[in-house]
Structures are given as structure tokens and as C-alpha cells.
Design a protein around this nucleic acid. Sequence first.
DNA 1: TACTAAGCTCTTTTT
DNA 2: GAGCTTAGTA
Length: 771
Amino acid sequence: MAFRNYLCKVSEKAINYLELLNEPQRGAVMQTEGPVMIIAGAGSGKTRVLTYRIAYLIEKGVDPFNILALTFTNKAAREMRKRIEQVVGNEAHALWMGTFHSIFAKILRIEADKLGYPSNFTIYDSDDAKSLIKTILKEMGLDDKVYKPGMVLSRISSAKNNLITAAQYASLSDLTEADSGSGKPKIHDIYRIYTERCFRAGAMDFDDLLVKTHELLSRFPDVLNKYQHKFHYVMVDEFQDTNHCQYSIIKKLSAMRENICVVGDDAQSIYAFRGATIRNILNYEKDYPDLKVFKLEQNYRSTSNIVEAAGSIIRNNKDQLKKQVWTDNPDGDKIRVIRTATDNEEGKVVAENIFEEKMRNQLNNDAFAILYRTNAQSRSIEEALRKMNIPYRIYGGMSFYQRKEIKDMVAYLRLTINPSDEEALKRIINYPTRGIGKTSIDKLILAASQNECSIWTVLENIEKIPAFGSAIKKLADFRNMMLSFRSMLESHSAYDLAMHIARQSTLLKILHDDKTVEGISRYENIVELMNGIKEFTEDDTRDEAKTLDVYLQDIALLTDADNEKGDDDVVRLMTIHAAKGLEFPNVFVVGMEENLFPSQMSISSRQDLEEERRLFYVAATRAEKKLTLSYAMSRFRFGNLTYAEPSRFIQEIDPRYLQVEKVKSNKPEFGGFPAAKKKQDFNFTPVGKSATPSLLFNKKESPINRKVDPNFEPDDTSLLKEGMRVEHQRFGPGIVTLIEGSGEGRKATVEFEEVGIKQLILKYAKVRIIS
DNA sequence: TACTAAGCTCTTTTT
DNA sequence: GAGCTTAGTA
């Protein structure tokens, strides 16, 4: 009887939320069996459908433990878990939900021994991978100007994502011929050695997490069988961004029951550069002929003007599936296009706009997002926001875990867990300095590769190798220290051990003793890391063991966007890629310039250009109420002043939806060139070789990066040429009291509140002829 | 071996 | 602007 009541209650609850859905949404939720594809336009309630679908499954009696839901970001996974919890309660905990990388890492931890890996394998991030490539290039005697590490890595990565092993790579003539054609015939060798070295180090890179999972499921039928029995229902979010390898894995995993549901939008496919392929959507239709397709075309997010404008852009793409996104929402404001003179002015105008909008409509800061194509663009915007006292937060760019001091500390932890971890070892063997120099390290690496063993194995036997001479003692000391850390693994909590390591390695001490502004900040970061480990150790909501190796695997897959607390009332700054899946009432897309967005590298090929266009589509459809596009006619990029045309994408928008504004420049020297396009038309003279708007000084001495007052003027400009003034300073607040000489190499004495008087060299200064 | 200044190069997006 | 290498000094 009780069970019957329970059933009634469940179905009532189910009906409640099913009523909230429109026709195709409800269909997509209730079609739980068999292969399903949901084509979900921007803002069409995709997350809602996925959430309810899982909730519906659970209420139908499916054990959450048997549901696998894959997303691209941790944030998306967390968000969905939260929303499912709201519907079904605590049961959601047992769901297998996470990013491809984190779920597969979890499986690999369990099954690692089958592949010959330790279960506490290290995850190499892109820096580690790059550094390993460099080491290999050096050993092979190859020129890293020809074999650019980044480029080599991306060749290897795309091979992996297409499930091509090193051996296969060597035998595929179109690949090797392409490499020979570009003067890099050895790529397949590098690939092979790279793979061996990763294996020897007990390490997997991001791609390996996918490839090794695929290998595991292919080579071991019993393992495949186990997970096929486990996952009765498989769901994949952002399907348009999956690569071949990911697709193969989910196909294998769901092969037994074929309860596989993918959700995606071909118009929002923006990761082709990472191996994502639209072919997956087409193959999916081919692989599952009895596929049920649901198209979610009604947009609930944005105003009609935004939906229509975005639609008018994306229609320029040839490669796309048929669908018609529409909305019932009111027209709203037109899309504003703002033209400014410089990047700095662009920042200023955006900041002022935000300020006014906030005042006029009583909005919070978090109602605004500023999106850009490249991370480097954030600087001018940041400065303007700071000047207007508008709090902001940057997502992406240099993340917490990429900071030097954090990577150093993490390297100690990694090496403690996995002594074979070569990249970690190289990082800290002489940091803090303990008299182990370059020569000794080179010898170590050489000995390791001669004996085809890890550097750690060489260290274990260091006393038997006379070639190391006087360095033996120092190397042995280091080894013994690491051994003593290792011996504490069982008996100490992750936090206690980490704290012990930080102290014992003297890392904490040297950071503590460094009283420069940056040193203090580094010390604080380490403290923050320690707090993070403590929190992890004390976190009771997760069922996994709370050991150090689990922590390390966790943070290896964490990105900056995952640190979102969500409740900060700040303006959000991020790349468009990072904004995927998010929405904001007011969106500014800055840097709408040809060669910047679309990026210069993409304009030569149609496919690349179409991806840029989809990227713009994603940016535009993030906005709920207001969308503003801005561009600058001149911009400092990488030390050079560049001149730009407005992006072709602005021209592609149906003009009915646009409202074009010219900003009346409040900078007199820029006032008179509304139609200026060519360099000569600017009343501007760069000085020195490249007119970078910066002063150069020892980076270690610099006050906190980015916390600057761009507003101050030099006190004494008498030694500058007449009519020139220093336009922009990266440091501050402070007062320039003296500038010696002129042009490149000038010296400036600057007084800082925090650090007193400093002598600075003005390497290049951006100056203007005022007259 | 440790440290620093100077010089050179490259310049997209990220799990 | 940032990362990296090189050369030179202590």
C-alpha cells in the first residue's frame, strides 16, 4: 500500500514539471528509451530539459547510479546536479555526472592497472605536456624553432582525438607527407617518444584521459561489459563539441541498451580547433537509424531583436542543420554598435555605459558581462572599470592553479604521490635552490633515458653512479626528503602532509621571507591552496576517499571558471568560449574588429570563418535584454599599434536590428577623425620602435600586476620632447618625479605608496603630439 | 652554481 | 605583454 502511495506521489510530481514544458521539450523528456537527439537552439531551455529528463528517469524508478551524464565543464555538471536535486532530492548524489575528462579519469583510476598505469597516475596539464615535448626535442637534437612545441603538441593531440596511435601515425602517408612537406618529418617519432615518456612517468595528458578510456574499453571486453551493465542511460550535453574519440567511447558504453541521448546545437559548435567535429551529429543519424529527433526552437532567453539579429548572422553559414529559432519575447532594444578611437577609449565607453545603465535601471553589477575573443583584451577594459570603481571578475586567463607558486607546491605533492612524475621532479629538484645545477639535472635526464627508466630510479641508485661526483650528496638529500614525505602518505591526512611538505621543503619559508608586494601575494596564494586542501579533507558530501592523490586529480581538471561562487555582485569578464552555456541580462561584445574577431588566422578558410561566425552567434545569444557591440579603430596589440576595420560580422547583421552610435571622443587629440581609416589620418606619432604603452621594469619588483591607477600624470615632463606626455602607465599609484633622457632607455623615478622610490626604465613610452 | 639584465620571438579559443 | 634564452658577473 505504501508503495502504491509512493507511486502516486511520484507521478503527481512528474506531471507538475512536465506541465512547465512545451511540446518538443516534453517529448524529449519522456522519450527515455532508445537513441535520442535533441537539437536545442540557443536559449531554448536545454538545461531544463536535461534536468527534467534525468529527474523523470529517477522518478520512473531508474537508479541514479545507472545514469551517466556527460558535460563539458564542471560548472555545467554542478549546475545540473543542483537543479536535479531540487526536483528529486538527495538521490541525485549517486548520479555519474561530470565532464568527459573527470568521469573518465574516475574510471581510469579504478582500472589503471589493466593498462599498466598506477591508479594514482598524474594528469599532465598543457604546460607539463609542452615542457615534455621541449625536453624530447632537445634530446633528439631538433630545432624548436622548426618543431614548435605548441604545434607539435596540437598535431599529436589531433591524432589522439582521432584515435590514431603513434605507430599508425607513422604508417599513414597523408599525415607523414604533410609533416615532411612542412619540413617536420620527425613528428611521428616525437609522438612515439612522448607516449613512452608519459607512460614511464605514470602520467596521462588531457587527451590520454579520453584515448586510454577508449583503449581500456576496446581491449578488455570484461571491463566494457561491466560499464555497459552499469550505465543503463547515457546522456551527453554539448554534443556538437565532442570529438571522434569521445563519440566512440559513448557509443561503446551505450551499445548494450542503446539508451543514449545527445543534446546539442550545431550553430554553437566552437571547438573544432580542439578536434570537435560536426560529423558526429551526422554520423549519429547514420549510426542510429531509428533515432528520435526533437528540435527545441523556441528561445525563452532573449528579446526578439537579439534572436532575429543572431539568426541573421548565422544564416551566412553554409554548414548547418535546418532549424528555425524564434521567440515570443518582446522586441526589446536594438543592438547597439559603438565605434571608438582606441582600445582604452573602448574600455572607458563600456565602463561608462555600465555605470549609466546601473544608475538608470537600478541594476546590480552581475547583470553585466563583457565578452571578448582573446584573453589579452581584458586589460584595457579592466583599467576602465577600475577607474570607475566598478567591481569585476575575470574568468579564465591565468587561473589560480597555473600560478608559479601553486604549481611549485603542487609539484611537491605530485612527486610525493608519484615519484615517476618527471615534470614535477624537474620543476622542484632545485627549487628552493639546493645546489643542484643545470649540469647535474642534464646528467640525470641523460642517465634516465639511457637506462630507459625514470629520473627517480636514477636518484634511487645515485650513490652507485660516480659520474655525479660532488652532486651525489645533494641529490641523495633531495631523494631522502621525498622518501620521507612518501612514508607519511598512509599515516597523515592530505592537509597535514601538505603542510609538512610546505614547511620541510622550505618553500613556505622563502615565500614568507619575501616581503615584496608580489612575494606577499604568493605566500597568500599558498595559504589559500592549503585552505583548499583542508576543505577538501573535511568535505563530507563526496563518497570518494579524501586522500591527496584524489585531490590532485581533482584540481588537475579544474578550471578557473569553476571557482565561481555565483553570489558575487561583480561585472563578469571572459572570453566568448568561456561564456558558453551562460546568460546575462546585458552583454557587451568588445573588440568587434576585422582580424581580431574574426581572428586573422581564420579568415582564409571557409570552415574556420564559419566557426568564428558561430562563436559570434554564441556571444550574441548570451544576452537576455541588451546587446552592445563595440570596436576600436586603433588598438595596441603585442606592442604594435594596429588599425582596424569593423568586423564583417557587424555588417552581416540585418540593419533593421541595429542602432549605430559614434562616440564623441572626449579626448581632444582624437577628436577630429570620424572617417579616419589609414594611419596617416591619425594625429598620433609613435615614438621608439614600437610604441608600446608600457614601462619596462623588473617584473619581480613590480607592484601587484593589474592593480594600477592608469590615471596619474608624470610630475616633471620637462625632459620629454616638447608636446609629448606619457600617456599610460602600467604601474602605480605613484608620481613620476623625474624623467631622464628621451626615447628608448629613458629613466624615470617613480614614487610608490607601497614600495617607496623606484628607478624605472622607460623602455618604450606611448606619447602624443598634443599641439 | 646562482642570479640578473638584456634581447628575441610570438601573438586564439580550452578540457 | 610574457616567456624564454643568452651572456655576463658574483
